[in-house]
Design a protein around this nucleic acid. Structure first.
Lengths: 290, 290
DNA sequence: CGCGATATCTGACTAAAGTCAGATAATGCT
DNA sequence: AGCATTATCTGACTTTAGTCAGATATCGCG
């Protein structure tokens, strides 16, 4: 019936009217949209004036005036940056925080209303995640963090859950060789998480030993972010990090129940090698010289 | 990691920036956004001034001026409505059509670009359909049309495809009692299609015989529109139409491989009855007195 | 200290969008 | 025909957003 482009355009029309509705609900608090956006940016932790300007794409003169008007309303206060008095930092006052929270409530209620009128809200959320990951593709960031950080833990939990679903015999982390977190933190290794706005959508661990050999562990991409070549990007970034750490040879184990992963390794310079550990889950082993 | 509301809000942020990008690409043709929107509304067949005003939510004075500026550019011409000279109708000139098509090209290319950078564009499209159906929920319309109309045929083809996937023995329309289209057109019956913007997302047929008994056939809701209570709405509307046609008793057949349908019938006043036909596919039979 | 670079602000504009009170003309109804 | 209603238009205005050229203050560095 409808070709692909028409379907995308129907989607665009649908969200345009919905987004417009959000904007006009923001107008209800008697403040122009520009000022409301600045207040919200500050509320969400963007304190540096340059950072706000950059985030909202505003002219420096315009932002300066908007900040002044929020200051006159008593919602924010600005002070000089402590190590550089040319820069200014903005902070919400008590009233500003109250006003910011009113905007937050509007946004949250809008979101809740949408979910409430859908009887299958889990499938709606999954679809929203997928579309958002596609739209945010260019702004996805790979962040190095501890495997114990919340975003990293989230990815690992999803990863284990997925293995449990995919392996016919299930998956129990405690039976697998769970790497010590310290081996995936510099200087021994690294742990990378792909962040798409606030959502962690993928991860990979480089588990070093201090020597010239290291292992790739825990490569995972969220279902909502598949098809965006994130796996490849994670692997390339992990390999660069390995080179920085003077690692010469990388190894990894995987399972033939994860064919996408195997395909990725084969097409990016990895070579199949014999089993090199006694972990019960993997049945395929790869190596790559850097 | 992220609760439902945060996920919706991430989605909102993602589409807000995307919509902004579409808007600014429209600016490239040297015309303010307001004028471009009016031109596009006219190009998409909205000719009545009041209709445009309503669709775009514009003040009458503002729209009047925008129409004047498009007229001065030679892109549209307005004439009095033929049955009511107070109303005006706008129409694209040859140049206007060319300009409209330039905007169409921009939108189409934007959509294609998004799809092209996604390696699983079919899953992206399915997600977009689902989100759009949810957002457009309040604007979904039930349209009575011939079962031979394109939108109706689309629904029927999807319906047959779904039966083929769901029934363990497959499904072949030619073995089933395919109702004559005329039995689902007034005055004998009706055929309803749920339109969500341009996408047909559900259908139902009321197959009459001219007498007091009629059958409900071809109830289908698109996967992207499930959870929106569309099935129930289609059934209620078909029942109202049946009452209008002085039908006293409705019957239908279904299959236990379609549990959602059976559940819907059971919770809306239908009673299980013995088999009343020799169609090989159904194994459940219902009746409802109006 | 002096000087070019940097961050923000101010002033003076313009363009776009939106508001609102009539003006104008056609229509429907008695 | 008379008159309230309806659809659109015009004029006069305000608000919001955005641009741009300097002004001001601070910083980093030789």
């Amino acid at each position: 019936m409808l070709d692909a482009v028409s379907r995308v355009r129907r989607f665009n029309r649908a969200v345009t009217s919905e987004v417009g509705a959000l904007d006009s609900s923001f107008l209800g608090r008697g403040r122009p949209l520009g000022a409301a956006r600045v207040l919200n940016a500050i509320g969400h932790g963007r304190s540096d004036v340059a950072e706000i300007r950059d985030y909202l794409g505003l002219d420096s003169g315009l932002l300066s005036r908007l900040l002044r008007s929020l200051e006159d309303e008593g919602l924010i206060e600005t002070t000089a940056h402590e190590d550089d008095a040319r820069r200014r930092v903005a902070r919400l006052t008590r009233n500003g925080r109250r006003e910011f929270e009113a905007y937050e409530t509007i946004s949250n209620m809008q979101a809740e209303r949408l979910l409430a009128r859908h009887a299958k809200s889990e499938s709606l959320l999954a679809a929203m995640d997928l579309v958002a990951s596609a739209l945010l593709q260019g702004r996805t960031a790979l962040v190095e963090m501890s495997p114990r950080a919340p975003a990293a833990r989230h990815c690992l939990a999803e990863y284990y859950g997925e293995l449990a679903r995919r392996f016919s015999q299930g998956f129990d982390v405690s039976l697998s060789r769970d790497p010590d977190a310290r081996d995936m933190i510099r200087p021994r290794g690294v742990f990378l998480v792909a962040m798409s706005d606030t959502l962690p959508v993928g991860c990979v661990g480089l588990k070093g030993s201090g020597g010239e050999a290291a292992e790739i562990k825990r490569l995972w991409v969220a279902p909502s972010a598949r098809g965006l070549r994130l796996g490849r990007w994670l692997m390339e970034t992990a390999e660069s990090a390995a080179r920085e750490l003077s690692i010469k040879v990388l190894r990894l184990d995987t399972n033939s129940a994860l064919p996408e992963a195997g395909q990725l390794y084969r097409t990016s310079g990895w070579r199949k090698i014999p089993r090199f550990n006694d972990d019960p889950y993997p049945d395929l082993f790869f190596e790559k010289h850097l």
